[in-house]
Write a protein that binds this DNA or RNA. Structure first.
Length: 356
DNA sequence: AAAACGGGGAT
DNA sequence: ATCCCAGTTTT
């Protein structure tokens, strides 16, 4: 490492020692100096939850998960269904499926202990290049180049990397490897990410109070806010469908069913509905309802946006007698139990529109 | 290499 | 409305 890089690294670690945010899964720099070791299970769980997800959204889920399943062995012993219920609302549900797979693998093949190298971590389900490096650095003090969206933004500015993403990834990874110290690699990674989250923000970065304001090449060129450059993204199409909320006239129970295990919202709970097509349907969809009506259309059209399309769902409700109806593919759920079901947000919106 | 995969908060 | 987030897996 060059002398310049060493000074750059040190100035950020000094900033981190003074400004590190307290987080439920983080061991503070002070506590670490006092000998506290981060729990690999908690680091892993937090890092998976944080994939494409904000710190604010993760906090409560992390506390709920670690309270229910304090160790990886507890999670391995859990039922898949209970993990999906606990994950409901957090999004990217393949993460919850892979979380359980990973816990099972660690319990069965590694004696309940996470492997302590980047390469071995990378082999586990749901752990990709970012998460493997983050766990290796934070939980095991390995010299790993941790690169997430924050690091891409911060380092593209620090090094004036004008290559658009994703082509710039190798260059950024190399720069992060050069900057990362062998002493405190995990704190350094967290410092860059904290910097990106609080100061080197996508818009209006606070360069005046940045610990790297002197050495930042983009700032010195007046280009900080223009970086990183990114390839233009595709626009989202709109899809349309109908959802059917069947309510038992006697008990108020709602008819629910399980979605297929893979794909969009895989393994989650839903109310019956039509396919989601790219053209607005002008025909009466009640023929596709699970039971005979009469179905009445709700005024509120549910709008929801997924990663790659907008969805507009017309909601129908029917109050019928559950007795005598065969619950082939689903079950009747008491209305008071809806909150604990594995219902994704779009389905909670549907139920709100049907029941208000 | 490109697409699939959620949801919410900030602007 | 748009962007973006402590990305990974599948095609």
């Amino acid at each position: 490492m060059t002398e310049t890089n060493s000074l750059t690294t040190k100035s950020l670690l000094d900033w981190y020692d003074r400004h590190a945010r307290a987080l439920p899964w983080r061991v503070s720099p002070e506590d670490r100096r006092l000998g506290e070791i981060p729990d690999p299970y908690r680091i892993w769980l937090s890092e998976v939850m944080l994939q494409q997800t904000t710190v604010a959204a993760v906090k409560d889920y992390f506390i709920k998960f670690t309270g229910t399943w304090p160790t990886v062995m507890d999670l391995a012993a859990a039922r898949q269904e209970d993990v999906m219920k606990a994950w409901a609302g957090l999004g990217y549900y393949s993460r919850a499926r892979n979380l359980k797979k990973c816990a099972d693998t660690v319990a069965r093949d590694h004696g309940g202990h996470f492997p302590d190298t980047e390469d071995a971590l990378l082999k586990l389900p749901g752990i990709g290049p970012y998460t493997a490096a983050a766990i290796a650095a934070i939980a095991f003090d390995r010299h790993a180049a941790v690169v997430d969206g924050n690091v891409e933004r911060v380092l593209s500015r620090l090094g004036l990397i004008e290559t658009p993403l994703p082509d710039a990834k190798p260059e950024i990874k190399a720069l992060m490897g050069t900057l990362t110290p062998s002493d405190r690699p995990g704190d350094f990674a967290q410092a860059v990410m904290d910097l990106g989250a609080t100061i080197c923000t996508p818009k209006r970065p606070a360069c005046a109070i940045c610990p790297w304001t002197q050495e930042c090449r983009a700032r010195n060129e007046g280009l900080a806010e223009t970086l990183p450059r990114k390839a233009p993204k595709k626009e989202k199409p709109v899809r349309f469908g109908a959802a059917f909320v069947a309510r038992d006239a006697k008990t108020g129970s709602i008819y629910l069913r399980r979605r297929p295990p893979k794909g969009l919202l895989g393994g989650m709970t839903e109310v019956p509905g039509t396919d989601w097509r790219e053209t607005g349907q002008t025909d009466d969809p009640s023929g596709q309802a699970p039971f005979a009506g009469p179905w009445t259309k709700r005024m509120t059209v549910v709008k929801h946006t997924f990663t790659h399309f907008h969805l507009r769902l017309t909601v129908y409700r029917a109050d019928i007698s559950a007795a005598g109806i065969e619950a082939n593919d689903g079950w009747w759920c008491p209305v008071d139990d809806l909150n604990s079901e594995a219902l994704p947000t779009v389905m909670r919106k549907v139920l709100a529109a049907a029941l208000d």
